[in-house]
C-alpha cells in the first residue's frame, strides 16, 4: 500500500487567505472575547471572569440599556422582515414578467440606493423629513395630507420605525436582485407544464415559483438578520451616538460604540464594550444556528 503523500500545494495555496483572515478576523474576535473577561482597577488590568456579563445582564442601569437596545434591534429586524423582504419578492416577481418594458431601468433605479454610503442616506433622509427645510411636509401638503406630518425622527414613538424604513428603502434592492436571479433560473418548461394543467397568473406564482425560490428567501432572511444585528452606521449618522430621542433608536451597535469608545464626558470602557460585543456575537451565532439546523435542513428542495 502506498503511503499518502502530503499535498504541499494545498497548504501553499490556502496559506495567504488563512493567514490574512486569522490576523484580521479570528485573532481580533477571540481577543475581544478575552478582553471582556477583564476590568481595569486603578490603572491595572485585572481578570474578573464573567463579572462584566453579570453587570451587563443584571445590574439595573446596564441591564435596562441592554434590553432596550436588544428590543429595538428585534423591532428593527421585524420591520425589515415584514416590509423589505415581501417588497423585494414582489418587485422581483414584477421585474421578471416578460412583458414589462424598461425592466433594466427599474432594476438599476431600485438597486442604486444600496451602493450609497450610510452617511449620505442618513443625511439625505434627515433633510427630506426635516420639519423646517424638508420636502416631505410640502409634498404632503400638496396632496392634502399636511396635517398628518409629524417630526418623525424626533419622536420617541416613531423614530426607530422611521429609520428602519429608511434602511428598507436603502436595501430593498438586495432581496430583489437575489430573488430575481432565482426566478430567472426557473425553466420555462415547468411554467408551461403548469399552464397546460391550468395554473396561470397569480396561481403560477404561489404554486410554482414561490416554492422554488424559498431557499433564496431563507438566505435573504439570514443575511437580513446578521446585517440588522450588526447595524450601527445609519443610526449613528442620523441620530448620533446617544441614539436619541431618549435612547429610542439605541441598538446594540450604538450601545457598544458608546461604551467602548466613550462619548463626550463619558470615558471609554473597552472591557464592558467587549462584553457587549461578545453578547452581540452570541446572539447572532444563536440566530444563525437556529436557521441552519432548524429551518434550512427542513426546506424542501426541488431538482430543476
Amino acid at each position: 500500500m502506498k503511503h499518502a503523500r502530503i499535498r504541499w500545494h494545498i497548504v501553499v495555496f490556502l496559506a495567504p487567505a488563512v493567514l490574512v483572515y486569522t490576523a484580521v478576523m479570528i485573532f481580533p474576535l477571540f481577543n475581544t472575547l478575552r478582553l471582556a473577561l477583564y476590568t481595569r482597577i486603578e490603572q491595572e488590568r485585572v481578570f474578573v471572569g464573567l463579572e462584566n456579563f453579570r453587570t451587563l445582564f443584571f445590574d439595573p442601569i446596564w441591564a435596562e440599556q441592554f434590553w432596550n437596545a436588544l428590543g429595538n434591534n428585534f423591532w428593527f429586524f421585524l420591520i425589515h422582515m415584514l416590509v423589505q423582504n415581501p417588497i423585494g419578492v414582489a418587485l422581483a416577481a414584477i421585474l421578471s414578467h416578460p412583458r414589462l418594458r424598461f425592466a433594466a431601468l427599474y432594476r438599476s433605479a431600485i438597486f442604486i440606493p444600496t451602493i450609497l454610503s450610510f452617511v449620505v442616506v442618513g443625511f439625505a433622509w434627515k433633510l427630506i423629513l426635516s420639519p423646517i427645510w424638508g420636502i416631505a411636509p410640502s409634498m404632503m401638503e400638496a396632496v392634502g395630507l399636511g396635517a398628518l406630518f409629524r417630526p418623525w425622527l424626533g419622536l420617541e414613538g416613531s423614530a426607530l420605525t422611521t429609520l428602519a424604513l429608511v434602511s428598507v428603502w436603502q436595501f430593498v434592492g438586495i432581496p430583489m436582485m437575489l430573488i430575481y436571479a432565482a426566478l430567472l433560473t426557473i425553466p420555462e418548461e415547468i411554467l408551461e407544464a403548469g399552464e397546460v394543467d391550468g395554473v396561470t397568473g397569480m396561481a403560477a406564482f404561489w404554486k410554482i415559483k414561490l416554492p422554488l425560490i424559498l431557499p433564496s428567501i431563507g438566505i435573504i432572511s439570514i443575511l437580513t438578520f446578521v446585517g440588522n444585528f450588526n447595524a450601527f452606521d445609519l443610526i449613528y449618522a442620523a441620530q448620533g451616538a446617544l441614539a436619541g430621542p431618549d435612547f429610542s433608536t439605541d441598538i446594540l451597535g450604538t450601545f457598544m460604540y458608546r461604551t467602548f469608545f466613550g462619548f463626550q464626558l463619558q470615558l471609554g470602557d473597552p472591557h464592558m464594550g467587549s462584553a457587549i460585543a461578545g453578547a452581540m456575537f452570541a446572539i447572532i451565532l444563536v440566530g444563525v444556528c437556529i436557521y441552519l439546523f432548524g429551518i434550512q435542513t427542513r426546506l424542501r428542495r426541488y431538482q430543476l
Binding site: 434627515k126 423629513l129 420639519p131 423646517i132 409629524r150 417630526p151 425622527l153 424626533g154 430621542p245
Partner: peptide
C-alpha cells in the same frame, strides 16, 4: 419652539 422642534438639529 418652532413646529417640529423635536426633529430640529443644532445647525437647523
Amino acid at each position: 419652539m418652532g413646529n417640529g422642534y423635536e426633529a430640529q438639529t443644532y445647525p437647523d
